[in-house]
Design a protein around this nucleic acid. Sequence first.
DNA 1: GGCATATTTCTATCATTCTCGAAATACCCA
DNA 2: TGGGTATTTCGAGAATGATAGAAATATGCC
Lengths: 105, 105
Amino acid sequence: MKLETAATQLEALGNPTRLRIYRALVRAGEQGLAVGHLQERIGIAASTLSHHLHRLIATGLVGQERQATTLICRANYAAMNGLLGFLSDECCADVRSPQTKDNAA
Amino acid sequence: MKLETAATQLEALGNPTRLRIYRALVRAGEQGLAVGHLQERIGIAASTLSHHLHRLIATGLVGQERQATTLICRANYAAMNGLLGFLSDECCADVRSPQTKDNAA
DNA sequence: GGCATATTTCTATCATTCTCGAAATACCCA
DNA sequence: TGGGTATTTCGAGAATGATAGAAATATGCC
């Protein structure tokens, strides 16, 4: 994973409102959660929620699927695992042997 | 860990420049890295680097220690582990059993 | 087609962030 | 104390982000 991709995903999760949204979606599991239900749960304006959802979707952390008039949102677990992998590989895994890694910034 | 704390740390890592800084510090290991060396490595203005370092330090992800005229920066591995723990516990761990968690957003 | 519900897009405002150069400060050494 | 290096603070400009109300669009149902 490119550093810029990881940064974009981290930034997406780095807003309290979006982190709440994402957490709610993860807790909803495979079943997902409709935008309207998300709105009730988080308690923000629909337009604000739409804005934040777009950012999460743009990073690949969240997916959407239409079911009739409602849009079901789901957390993309693979994306989160990729991000955690990046953090582990690039930023955490070599605490005890930093010299084994390319030291370029 | 509070959600707001996690969001602040994620936001701190969610900027490409800061993620580079953080990665360089992690790779430097326990020895740490002087601000000046960081600047050479990342290639940004000293004032910009200082600004970003402050944000990383404010979140607890990075620590600083004075050695004469130079300031040594170090990654705070405990903080990163706490953040990864939050993501696992709150956002990832219960993929297979979402109903066992408090569902409030 | 017409209505109802769900969601987005548009528009606007306010706040924050990123970046850098210049000036100021901190620390050490002679 | 004077000078030199390291780093921060100040000031400013351009860009981006968060928020929400109003209007527009999408979909299904009758």
